[in-house]
Amino acid sequence: MFQPRLTQLGMALAITVSATATQAADFPTRDIRVIVPWGAGGGTDGIVRKITNIAEESLPVSTYVENIEGGMSATGLLQLMKARPDGHTLGALTYDSVVTVPWQGMLPGYSLDQLKLVARITSEPDAVIVPDDSEYQTIQGLIDAAKSAPGEIRVGLQNMGSRTHLTLLQLQDEAGVEFKVIAYPGGAAPQKEALLNGEVDFVVTSLGDFAPLIEAGDARGLVEFSDQQNEAFPNVPPATEAGLELQMGSFIVLAVPARTPDEAVETLESAYKEAYESEAFQEWLPKVGVAPSWLGSEEVTQWAEETQETLFATMDELAEQGLLEK
């Protein structure tokens, strides 16, 4: 029997919606892929692998982490955006994914609206790190030296325009100094090599990134841009204790494609929260110098929007001053 085209379309839509609802109710039905948009062996990679391995115990399927480097996380973000929105592809967002990439327009069409945020699991302030044999014993000592020799003290950053670059610009502005900037794209590994072989006098990144070198006695932190003492590094004072107001750092947020069913998001959030609260994760995380910092899906979405608004305004102002290129 002939049916009007609209009726046929309506039936097709109903079948699609029904199938999607059934898939969401059965989620997960196959292995879950977790995209880390940075290289293997870095701080983000290690943390995501640790919590994912624990979360897998609460899921009826296996999980696997895939490193997709490039474009300050833009390459991995593109794959996350294009993934089937069924909850079986999850991605790890860091500062650059939330702030740098959208502000600089590095990935056309990308915004947080293209994703659903599942949870925030860590907060990791930036820090100033020097070789263990450095003449600088305190951040004030480094600032005083920079005032005596403007533009001569060398600092290693991961990328121009990145979070660490913004941290440095704000430090220079607050302290009234200028450093010689040398960029080392590709994460913390090139920074470590540059610091150890004497190419730079200090680096700006997280203490967690340099935890092995600090523990081995090859490097030490002068200050962490936070208002709280990092228990894993009791000899590194927070910025507020060192007389600085600057607070800046990264984080790890888990996300899925925007049209992922809420039921799948809830399942993932529950599994990762259980993993986050586990004794294994809570005891391990401070050992790598990172603070646990949970926000669920609803809370992290609001936090991310507010973070973007604040930092975009700061970056626009620095761009107007010619200190940052957009």
Rank of each mutant, 00 (worst) to 15 (best):
V236L: 02
L254E: 01
S134N: 02
V253Y: 13
Y184T: 08
A219F: 05
G156E: 05
G198H: 12
E174N: 09
P234G: 02
G217L: 14
V203H: 10
V177C: 06
P190M: 12
L195T: 02
F210A: 08
P212L: 06
A239E: 01
V203N: 04
L166W: 06
V223L: 13
A188V: 11
A232W: 14
L166A: 12
A149N: 12
F179P: 04
V181C: 05
L166C: 06
A211C: 09
V253E: 13
G161S: 03
P150Y: 12
A255E: 08
N230T: 06
F251E: 14
R220N: 09
E199A: 10
P150S: 08
G156S: 04
A149Q: 15
Q137S: 09
G151F: 14
P234D: 10
Q140M: 02
L246R: 03
L166H: 06
N235T: 09
Q229F: 09
A188N: 14
V236C: 04
Y184C: 08
T167R: 03
P238F: 14
G151L: 13
S226Y: 09
A194I: 14
P185S: 10
G151R: 07
D201W: 02
A216Q: 15
Q137G: 03
A188Q: 07
L157N: 10
F179S: 11
L207A: 11
D173G: 00
N197R: 14
Q191N: 09
A183F: 06
A216W: 04
I182D: 14
F233W: 07
L213W: 09
H165S: 00
Q172V: 07
G208W: 15
G249D: 15
D209C: 14
L142H: 09
R220Y: 13
G161E: 06
P238V: 05
A145E: 02
T205Q: 11
R163I: 07
T164C: 14
V155W: 03
D209R: 01
E231F: 03
F251T: 05
N230G: 05
G208H: 02
H165Q: 00
E215K: 15
S162K: 10
P237N: 11
N230V: 06
V177G: 05
T240Q: 07
D218R: 12
N159E: 13
N197H: 14
H165D: 12
D209P: 03
V155D: 01
E215V: 14
A194T: 11
G243R: 11
